[in-house]
Nucleic acid binder design. Structure first.
Length: 456
RNA sequence: GUGAUUGUAGCUCAGCUGGUUAGAGCGCUGGUUUGUGGCACCAGAGGUCGCCGGUUCGAACCCGGUCUUUCACCCCA
């Protein structure tokens, strides 16, 4: 017999973890619904043609491919093998596990475009898979909770995303965090202004590391990536402004004055904030970050990222606007904006911050205990009465000693035990024992029931 | 994908320079207690030392490979 094990980067979730995860999930779901999003699900596997080419070369590497059923080698000949893995892959695998929820959603929108009412607001909570190397807060199977709107350019959506993030975090009890927001157009503008148009990708990858490795190292990296020296020196006022982070928007207005697209990005950002103010909301936790760069292969407008302070976990939520996501599936002119919560990371953050309160409100309230066969059948009868009254209750199923039954209850965190014996049978009562305090009193069944139902 | 790192009882970990029968704490099972858990005391069960191979008279310990854990890079939730 071999010891069983799990694939790298995957985990089981026990009862305690599930109770906590459900708490997070319910908080998120509740918020999505409050803002008018409708739930959908899509299959774990998609055609590889749907997935490949959407996440950049790196992303394609991280896709899990599913071997064809049956004789998966039947289309492969020796030529394919000599040309290597890339040539052979399409002949042995035509399906893959989803890498995120956004691309399957785009596919769904395109396939159902005639049935959907636009703007279409959907949320989706399902696992995704990445063949990444596991690390702290990084798994190969993890859940994403996406909410997206397609079919509108309105910046109200961006404002609502910020509001949803704040509502969820408030519900979870996470207080010290930042919602960083930027706009792809600002990044494009920056590249334009320093004379390196179109190179915002490598520019951002480098600048993003500012607080990690410092300006000097970033300069080296930019040089390595082929940026001209005078471009780099034009960048330095932006870097010092980013460090001070006082009034990034007013800085950008002068820095980007020569770039029309850059100025448009600034205006969009301002408009999001104005909309929030019209809604009577403040800007707490919101932080414009002009070097924030994520999802450059498809974001075209706003870019979001949420970071919880004082913890070692990376971002717990992210998103942005993509003008043409459905374009790759043949439906053009549909703008979308969305974001995603990483439940697994939120869990890790809450654990690190000790935010889980241990009252397991879903657990059993009452265990019925007994001494012998006669009281066992009495307890079974009483058990039914409790359950009919809606009290979460159970009985130790094997006839066992009192010690064992009480042990079971206290280990499972059941707060009350109803002890049944000869005296109780005679008087139609149970001895209700509080396992925390050790107090015990004899009460009629109806009295016990009304105590439990009154609490709820 | 690159570079490190970890693996000994259910859990957390000792185990010296390669040398008899691999240990502790917690947990588990039973008992002290046939109408009462937690506390205490007593007894007991439990290990192919991740796996495969090599060196050696002899390997938990040294070497190679492999899997796993954790971490950095890349990228990302």
């Amino acid at each position: 017999m071999q010891k069983p094990s799990l694939p790298k980067g995957t985990r089981d979730f026990g009862p305690v973890q599930m109770a906590r995860r459900n708490f997070i999930l319910e908080t998120i779901k509740d918020t999505f619904q409050l803002f008018g999003y409708q739930q959908i699900e899509t299959p774990a596997m998609e055609n590889l043609s749907t997935l490949t080419g959407k996440y950049g070369d790196e992303g394609d590497q991280l896709l899990f491919k599913i071997l064809n059923s049956g004789d998966f080698l039947k289309k492969v000949d020796l030529n394919d093998l000599s040309e290597g893995a890339a040539a052979t892959l399409p002949k042995v695998a035509e399906k893959g596990l989803r890498y995120d929820l956004t691309v399957p959603f785009a596919r769904y929108v395109v396939m159902n475009r005639n049935e959907l009412t636009f703007p279409f607001k959907r949320y989706q909570i399902q696992p995704v898979w990445r063949a990444d190397r596991p690390q702290k807060g990084r798994y190969r199977e993890f859940y994403q909770c996406d909410a997206d709107v397609v079919g509108t350019d309105s910046l109200v959506c961006e404002a609502e995303i910020i509001l949803m993030i704040r509502r969820v975090f408030a519900g979870l009890g996470i207080q010290d965090y930042k919602v960083k927001i930027n706009n792809r157009k600002i990044l494009t503008g920056i590249a334009e202004v320093i004379g390196e148009s179109g190179k915002e990708g490598p520019l951002c990858v480098a600048i993003d590391k500012l607080d990690k490795i410092g300006w000097e190292k970033v300069k080296e990296e930019l040089t390595d990536r082929g940026f001209a020296e005078n471009a780099i020196s034009k960048l330095s006022p932006l870097v010092s402004a980013a460090n001070e982070s006082s009034e990034p928007l007013s800085f950008l207005k002068s820095f980007l004055a020569a770039s029309e697209i850059g100025m448009q990005g600034v205006r969009e950002l301002e408009e999001v904030f104005e909309i929030m103010q019209s809604m009577g909301e403040d800007l707490s936790h919101v932080e414009p970050d002009m070097v924030l760069a994520r999802g450059l292969s498809y974001y075209t407008g706003a870019i979001f990222e949420v970071k919880v302070n004082q913890v070692s976990i990376g971002s717990v939520s992210g998103g942005g606007r993509y003008d043409n996501l459905t374009g790759v599936f043949g439906l053009t002119g549909v703008s979308g904006v969305g974001f995603s919560f990483g439940v697994d990371r939120i869990y890790d953050v809450m654990e690190e911050l000790n935010l889980f309160h241990e009252e397991d409100s879903q657990g059993t309230q009452l265990l019925l205990a007994y001494f012998d066969e006669k009281s066992f059948s009495y307890a079974l009868k009483v058990l039914t009465q409790f359950r009919k009254a809606g009290v979460r209750s159970e009985i130790y199923p094997d006839q066992a000693k009192m010690k064992k039954q009480l042990d079971y209850a206290s280990k499972k965190g059941i707060p009350y035990v109803g002890i049944c014996g000869d005296e109780e049978i005679k008087s139609e009562t149970i001895a209700l024992k509080n396992l925390l305090t050790g107090n015990q009193e004899s009460l009629p069944i109806y009295e016990v029931i009304s105590r439990f139902t009154a609490v709820n």
